[in-house]
Design a protein around this nucleic acid. Structure first.
Lengths: 159, 159
DNA sequence: GCTGAAAATTATGCATT
DNA sequence: AATGCATAATTTTCAGC
C-alpha cells in the first residue's frame, strides 16, 4: 500500500543523517553492520528519488533575527504572481504558503527587533501592489519545525 | 555591530552546503580557491557555534503526506506542558509554536488524506486534556520553508 | 586562524552474484 | 540490489607559521 520502497535500513540511515548530514557512510555502515557501499547506495537513492534533501539549516536567532511573526495577507488575483516573486526575494520571509481562501497567503517573517517588524507591516508590505495585510501575530517561540519531521517508522516496515 | 564573526567566505561555504550538505570540503575549497583545511575549519566552527545545522530534510509529500493544515489551539495553562509533550510525540505534527496569547498554540500537521485530518480534529485533539481547537485552515501549498532561509548577505560583509 | 605533508579513512568505478 | 576489490579522493593528525 506504500508508494515507496524504503525499508528499516533506510530509516536507520535517515536518522543518522538527520543528526549529521556529513556522517561518513562507512561510519553508518559500521554502526548497523551494513556494507559501506550499501549505505552510500541507499543515501543516493533517497536523494535521487526526492524523498530527502541533505542541506544546511541556518538558525535565524544566531544571526540576531529573534523576532518571528506570522502575517496573513490577501492578494488581488492579478497581482498574485508578482507578489509571490517579491516576497520570495525578501530574506526576511522564512515561510510562504497559500492559504485556504483563493486570495490568501500566509507568511512567517524574521526580524532583529520589533521596529523592523513594524516597518515591514506599515510600509514594506502595503507598498507592494495588490497586497492587503489582514492580520498578524507574534510567534514567541517555535518548538518544532519541518526540519525535524519524519514519517512514522511504520512507513518503513518490511513488506 | 554584528554578534557573530562570520565573513563572506563562510557565506559562500554556507550556500554550497545548502545545496548539498555532503559536498566534500576539498571540492568547495577548489571552487573558491581556498585551502581545504580552511573550509573544514569554517564548517566546524559554524556548526559548533550553533549558527548552522547539517541535516536531512524529509519530504512529507514523497511519503504520501499530501494534506497540510494549520491548527490553532488554546490550552489550559495547567495542562500546557503535557499537551506540548503529547503533540511533539506525534509524527503528524510538523510545526509547533507558541501563539501570541498566553494560552495559544499553533501547529501544522501532515496527513495522507482529509479523513485522517478530520479524525485528528474531531477525536485526537479534543481527547487531549486541556486542549481546545479554536480553528484550522488547509494549506494548499507551501512555497518556502525555514530550510531555505538565509540571512541577507550583508550580514557577512567584511568588517 | 591559516597552511603543508604524511597517514588514515572514505568514496568511486567496475565487475560479480 | 548488494558486495568485493583496486584505485582515486578526501579527511585527519600533527606540525609550523
Amino acid at each position: 500500500m506504500r508508494r515507496h520502497s524504503f525499508d528499516l535500513v533506510d530509516y536507520q540511515i535517515l536518522r543518522e543523517l538527520q543528526a549529521d548530514a556529513r556522517k561518513p557512510a562507512a561510519e553508518i555502515a559500521r554502526k548497523f553492520n551494513l556494507n559501506e557501499r550499501t549505505v552510500r547506495n541507499r543515501i543516493e537513492r533517497m536523494v535521487e528519488a526526492g524523498a530527502i534533501r541533505l542541506t544546511c539549516i541556518v538558525d535565524p536567532a544566531f544571526f540576531g533575527y529573534v523576532i518571528t511573526a506570522d502575517i496573513f495577507l490577501e492578494v488581488e488575483l492579478e497581482h498574485e504572481q508578482a507578489v509571490i516573486t517579491a516576497l520570495l526575494a525578501m530574506p526576511e520571509v522564512s515561510y510562504l504558503a497559500f492559504g485556504q481562501g483563493t486570495q490568501d497567503l500566509s507568511i512567517e517573517v524574521r526580524f532583529k527587533n520589533n521596529e523592523q517588524l513594524r516597518e515591514f507591516l506599515r510600509s514594506v508590505l502595503p507598498s507592494i501592489p495588490g497586497v492587503h495585510v489582514k492580520g498578524y501575530a507574534l510567534v514567541p517561540r517555535i518548538l518544532r519545525n519541518i526540519d525535524e519531521w519524519m514519517p512514522p517508522v511504520e512507513e518503513f516496515a518490511e513488506e
